[in-house]
Simulated scan of single mutants.
Amino acid sequence: MHFLPEELDAYVVAHSENEPELLQQLTRETYQKILQPRMLSGHYQGRLLSMISKLVNPKNILEIGTYTGYSALCLAEGMQKNGVLHTIDVNEELVDFQRKYFDKSDYGNQIIQHLGNALDIIPKLDKTFDLIFIDADKDNYPNYYNIIIDKLNLGGIILSDNVLWSGKVIEELKPNDTATKALLEYNKLLKEDSRLETVILPIRDGLTISRKL
Rank of each mutant, 00 (worst) to 15 (best):
D150G: 10
L85T: 02
T66G: 09
T68Y: 12
K138F: 07
D126Q: 15
I52M: 02
A136Q: 09
Y44M: 13
M51R: 11
K100S: 06
Q45A: 01
Q45C: 05
G65N: 14
R99P: 02
K54Q: 14
C74R: 02
F133D: 03
D106R: 03
I121F: 05
D135F: 01
E92R: 09
T68Q: 13
M51Y: 13
I149A: 03
H86S: 13
H86E: 07
L94H: 12
R99E: 09
Y145V: 10
G65E: 10
I148F: 05
L131Q: 10
T68F: 06
D137A: 14
S53K: 05
D120P: 04
G69W: 08
I121K: 13
K151M: 07
N60D: 13
I132R: 11
L55A: 15
D106A: 13
D96G: 00
E92D: 15
E63R: 10
I132K: 09
I134W: 05
G78F: 01
D139I: 14
I111M: 08
N82S: 15
Q45M: 12
N143E: 14
N57T: 12
L48C: 07
V84A: 08
L159P: 02
I158E: 05
I148V: 15
N153R: 08
L75D: 00
I121H: 11
P58M: 06
P37Y: 01
S53V: 05
P37T: 04
Y70I: 06
N109I: 13
L152T: 06
T66K: 11
D137T: 10
K127A: 15
L94D: 05
D96A: 14
K59E: 15
V95A: 12
N140R: 10
G42F: 02
S41G: 08
Y44A: 15
P58R: 07
V163R: 10
N82A: 09
D126K: 14
L115H: 11
Q113R: 12
N143F: 04
T87E: 03
G46D: 06
L75H: 10
Y44P: 00
N153H: 02
K127D: 09
G116F: 11
K168Q: 12
D161C: 07
I61E: 10
N140W: 04
S41L: 01
D106V: 03
G116W: 02
L164A: 11
N153Y: 07
Y145Q: 05
G78P: 04
H43D: 09
D96M: 07
Q98A: 13
Q45L: 14
P142C: 12
K54L: 12
V163A: 08
I157E: 00
